[in-house]
Structure formats: structure tokens, C-alpha cells
Design a binder for these strands. Structure first.
Lengths: 353, 353
DNA sequence: CCCGCTTCCGGAAGCGCCTCCACGCCGGGC
DNA sequence: GCCCGGCGTGGAGGCGCTTCCGGAAGCGGG
């Protein structure tokens, strides 16, 4: 591995500005003890020379670490790549670098990544994605993060409320509620849910919202089959298969994220089951392709890009010691994949061999 | 910004092992000049203590920098997020950290990011995405990168051949050719192309391939309208609008990437123009949602994840000084968005207000 | 006019690591 | 038996930066 060539040193800047190293450092850091005039001159010179501080030296000397670590389940999942887009956006503006790693939906691996990030002296760690509900690992994660925070590290989480840190939290319960109400109001009574792993808090919350809405509309939870599978496209296919097999009279499937909804749609398409004529389908997140699917997907929009930005913002100005939670808006986006319950609903399932 | 707590120092390890700092350093780095026995003892102690080297100190002292910088146009574009997924995958295995930044499809900004990455002492820089064809900036970029490489920095590019570095290169010309042939063989004679900015080499190559194929099928390039717009979904919409307006007898639109194809499909859908019954549409890349669009998209598959992995691999073991180019496979994926030319093709355009 | 305080600045000590260099030990050749 | 060469090891300098501390001005009041 390479050692990039030497660059401009602070000493060079100092010399050009006719001041000492110490003064130049203070001037650029914007600290007290330098006259306005000198400070400006130094900054001017630094700019002209295109000086960029060596972050390694800076960090080593006890200064700020300019990198933020971002842990996502998987970057090529649109939900996470949109969040990452937001984080990178703000980081760019603040001249920070973003280090991304995958947790791969594995609590142990996530913890390992956190440790790695800490060892690399990241100044901020942002964790996107649900908790996994593994009590042992969760506890250790909590301990490690606490130590990191005690040492001055900043932590923010997105969509997970179990951690002791600043949090950006979509109201998954309310979103699920909106979805449930929407379908109930369209007249559906045979509604099934394609859910991710039950231990993911995102799944649990959305599910709770859906259940509450359906209850308000007179459906008992027992009437609503919930199929748990991977929280990705393939999982959606699997869930749809099971639902069609075990509950052939279903008229609407609520997928708890758009990825699963895409899988559900794929299965339905292959089986020649019309959407929404025979089956309504809804998703959650509103990833950018949701509008281009066949048919376009009814879903709950979450402002992923904003969530990423906000998380970094919170972490950066994390002033008080008490973690803050910043809720995010959400909005039901009704598109073409949901419709009135088919009048011949009792015939539903006929197409399923 | 925080200064993460102090950690175990190499000195601690050395003391525990009863050797000097220098010896411990050599032992852990696996360098010559340490007896097997001592080396093993030191490594054992380091492991037991859970020692992780401080990368800042290491880099500062002239050692390896464990971070790879990845520049993409925009991380929430599926094409790039899949590439990033591959890079991160391999980086994970190698215990490297990946720093991602956006070029935002702006050559100046890209250059700035490269400079920033260099200043941050990234050991590897991977640039994904087309060149912009701005000769001035291009030249300067080349200079900056050359200096970086001279200093030991490793550079790899993905999908851009103009730079003097290891390159992972999809055969865009052949891919374009496959697309052109496919549509020509379906009987289409009125083919239009929705292209990104002409300066992007990706666009130029794919276009050249399409043109060559059509020529072989007896179509003169003059018969093939090419509309240039942004290389994203919105650009596809725009291009489709123009094509429908200026060339109402078009029976097939080749979009030079899937993002634009999605925009084209959206416009067609809104206008009630059947695909492929009235208009065939093809894309390029085969991003993962391409199969779920309405209708599913005929496209040329590029192994994005592999491309990311390969780029990092090349950069890492960049042995010789002569840059290597690694071609990638591609494959025409025929789905539902393309079909035989409508028999009443001469009537095409009737639906356009 | 001198004293003491404030303001601004430079010197210098590290941060944790790598690496050059010098040193001590051993064995083999004369 | 002595010298030379090589291997294994420790000492020390330095990477570029931050920050503590002490010194040099400049100011007002006694």
C-alpha cells in the first residue's frame, strides 16, 4: 500500500504568511489568541496555496477527526443508498469524508464494523437500519458505543430507537396505520402482510401500526396472516407464494418495505394475478423506483435523503449529553397498485392453480 | 469534533512481549529481521490484548493508508450503488475502509474530490463513471492523478478509458451493437436514441455501437435521431418527449442507460402509448429493478458488483507500472419491453395528440 | 514613571508509529 | 585464535499537527 506523496505542510503556509507554526495552526482552527488581521492573512495564504491539513497528523495530535462512519445493511439497497446520499451530501458541504461499511443484516458483523470504525478513529458514527433484537450482541454494542461516546465520539442512528444516541425516527407505527386504514377503507377484509424478520424493530413497528388500523376497522389480528421472510425482494416473492398458498382468498398484501413489495409484484405478475384488479399491493418507504413499477406502487413515503442529512446534522452539533430524537414526516402515496376490493372477492384465489 | 479515547499503544504490546518498540513494529508488519520465535510471541500478545494499530500514527509515519476513496457520480443511482456494493464487499474482506464521495457529474467537483482524497492520504482511489470531456479539467485531473501515483497512490477507473490507470471496462460499443442489432432484427427501422451528454465517453461508446449495428442493417445514421439529455430518469422523460414530438413515426427507443429508459417508459405510460405494442424500449446496465419495471426492460447486463470488486482488486495488486485494462462481460437481456415492429408502424404517432 | 494585566505570538513537547542506523552476538574461514 | 560478515535487536529521529507555556509587547491606573 502506497504512501501518497508529500503535500503542502502547515509549516509552508506559516512561512509564506510570515508567522510561526503555532500561530498558523490557531488561525486555521479559528481559535482564540490570534489577531483578526493575522488570522485573515494566514487563511488567505492557505487558500491561495490550496492547503489541506493532513488529517492523520491532525488526529494524531489530538485534533478533530474529519471522517464519519456510516453503517448500512447493504449499500445497493435503494433505501440505504438514498440515506447514504443524504449523508454524503451534507458531509461534502462540511468537507467531511464518509466511510461506508455493510452490516449485512448481521448483528455480530455490525458490531465488528463499529469496532473497526472506532479503531480508525472516526469522529462520527451513523448507524442506519433496524436493530436485530439479539440481546447479547445488542448489549455489547451498547457498551462499545457508550465507551466511544465517553471518549468524545458522536453517534446517531436512523430508524432504530433502542440505542442510546441521537436518533432520526420515522413514525413507522403511524405509517403502518395509514397503510392499514387505506386498504380497509377500500373495502378489503382479507389482508395479508409480507413482513421482514420479526426481530427488526422497523418491522415490529410497522406491523403494529397495520394491526392497530385493521383492528379499528373491525378486523381481528387473527384474521390477518403475517408472513415473515427476508426484508428484501426475494423475501417478498417467498411471502407472496405462501400467502397465495395458505390464504387464497386474500385481496390485499401489505409489504412492510418496497423491496418486498417488488417481490410480491413479481410473483403476482408471473401468476397472472392482476394488480389491483384481483389483488391490491402496498409497500413502504417510497424508494425512487416505486413510481415506475408495474403497476406503480402505493406506499408510505419516507424522506430518506433528508433522514441521512439530519442524522449527520444531529451528530455534528450533538450539544447536550441527552440524546435527541428527531421524528421524520411520512406520507401515504396512493398510486395504482391498490384499488377497491374486487366485487367478486369471494372468487379470489381461483387463479391459483 | 471528538477525539476518540486512547487505545492500546504498540509500546504496550512491546513491553508485554518483552521486546522493543522497533521489534514489535517489525513483527506485526511481518517484515524481515525478526526471529520467528519473537515474531510469534509478539503477534500472540497483540492478539490477546486486542491491539489495533492507530491508522493515523501509522500513516503519518509513512506506512500504509488503509482507506480507499471511491468517487461516484451519485450514490443513490442504482448503477453506482451496485458498483459501490462490490467495492465495499472486497474492502470488507481486506479490512479496508471505503470513503465515498460524489462527483455530481461535474468535472470540476470531481477534481476537487480527488484532491481532497489525496490530501486525506487515501491509499487507493477508484473513479467510477464516465469522463466529462472537458479538456482543461481532464488534463489537470490527469496531472494530479499522475502525481498521486508517482507518490505510490493507486488509481483504478471504472468505465472510463481516457485516464492513465488500471481500468475496468465494459465493452460499451459491443453492448450498444447488441442492442441495435436486436431492434433491427425485430424489424424496427424507425429507431431513436435517448442519450446522455455527448461528452460522456460511456454515451459516446454505446452510441457508436448502436450506430454501427444499425448501419450494418442498412440504416444510415441520419435516419437515427439521437436526443441528448441528462443521463438520469428525468433526462429520459425529456428525450422521450422530444422524440415523440419530432419523430412521431418512431417505433423503438434505445435509452443508453436504464435510468433514462425508466424515464422513457414513464412518459410513454402517461401518454398511453403501449410498450412494446406500439413502441419498443431498451435500456443499458440492467440495474436490479429493470426486471420489475412495467414492462420489464430489455437491456444489456453489466456486472456492476463485479466491476466494483475487480477495480479494487486491480488497484490493490497493481504491480507493474503499466496500467492494465480489464474488460467485463455483458449480455443482452431480452425482456418484455421490446417486440416486433407493429405491423401498422406507418400509423405510429397517431396517439400523440 | 513603574507595575500588573491583557493580548498576541513563538518555542517546544509530544501524539503513535515506522525505519534508518548502530550495536552485540554468533559462526565460519584464514 | 582472531577477524570479518550476517542476523537479530534496540535507540532515536521524524512524519505534520495541536497545544501548553513562557515571553514580548501594549494598555491603563497608581
Amino acid at each position: 500500500m502506497p504512501k501518497p506523496g508529500p503535500g503542502l505542510r502547515l509549516l509552508d503556509v506559516a512561512r509564506h504568511a510570515g508567522v510561526s507554526l503555532a500561530t498558523a495552526s490557531r488561525a486555521l482552527a479559528g481559535r482564540e489568541g490570534v489577531s483578526q488581521e493575522v488570522a485573515n492573512r494566514v487563511r488567505q495564504v492557505a487558500d491561495d496555496l490550496g492547503y489541506v491539513a493532513n488529517p492523520f497528523a491532525r488526529t494524531l495530535a489530538g485534533g478533530a477527526s474529519p471522517t464519519v462512519g456510516l453503517i448500512v445493511h447493504q449499500i445497493d439497497d435503494p433505501y440505504f443508498s438514498e440515506i447514504a446520499g443524504g449523508v454524503i451530501q451534507l458531509a461534502d458541504e462540511r468537507r467531511l469524508l464518509v466511510q461506508i461499511c455493510h452490516s449485512g443484516r448481521d448483528p455480530g458483523h455490525e458490531l465488528r464494523q463499529i469496532r473497526h470504525l472506532i479503531a480508525q478513529r472516526a469522529g462520527v458514527i451513523i448507524i442506519a437500519g433496524s436493530g436485530f433484537g439479539d440481546p447479547g450482541v445488542e448489549a455489547e454494542t451498547r457498551t462499545v458505543l457508550a465507551g466511544y461516546q465517553r471518549g468524545g465520539g458522536r453517534v446517531a442512528v436512523i430508524g432504530r430507537h433502542a440505542l442510546d444516541a441521537d436518533a432520526v425516527l420515522p413514525d413507522n407505527v403511524a405509517g403502518g396505520h395509514a397503510l392499514g386504514s387505506h386498504l380497509a377503507e377500500l373495502g378489503h377484509r382479507r389482508i395479508a402482510v409480507a413482513a421482514g424478520a420479526a426481530v427488526l424493530n422497523t418491522v415490529a413497528d410497522r406491523l403494529a401500526g397495520v394491526a392497530a388500523a385493521l383492528r379499528r376497522h373491525g378486523l381481528s389480528p387473527d384474521d390477518v396472516p403475517v408472513v415473515h421472510a427476508d426484508f428484501v425482494r426475494e423475501g417478498g416473492r417467498l411471502a407472496a407464494d405462501r400467502i397465495l398458498r395458505d390464504h387464497p382468498d386474500t385481496t390485499a398484501i401489505i409489504a412492510l418495505n418496497d423491496a418486498m413489495a417488488m417481490g410480491v409484484l413479481a410473483t403476482l405478475r408471473e401468476r397472472g394475478i392482476g394488480v389491483p384488479s384481483r389483488m391490491s399491493v402496498a409497500g413502504f418507504d417510497d424508494v425512487s423506483v416505486a413510481a415506475d413499477l408495474a403497476p406503480s406502487l402505493t406506499t408510505v413515503r419516507l424522506p430518506m435523503t433528508d433522514m441521512g442529512r439530519t442524522a449527520l446534522e444531529l451528530a455534528l452539533k450533538s450539544a447536550g449529553s441527552r440524546p435527541r430524537r428527531r421524528p421524520t414526516g411520512h406520507r401515504l402515496i396512493v398510486r395504482d397498485s391498490t384499488g377497491l376490493v374486487p366485487s367478486g372477492a369471494r372468487l379470489a384465489g381461483e387463479g391459483v392453480e
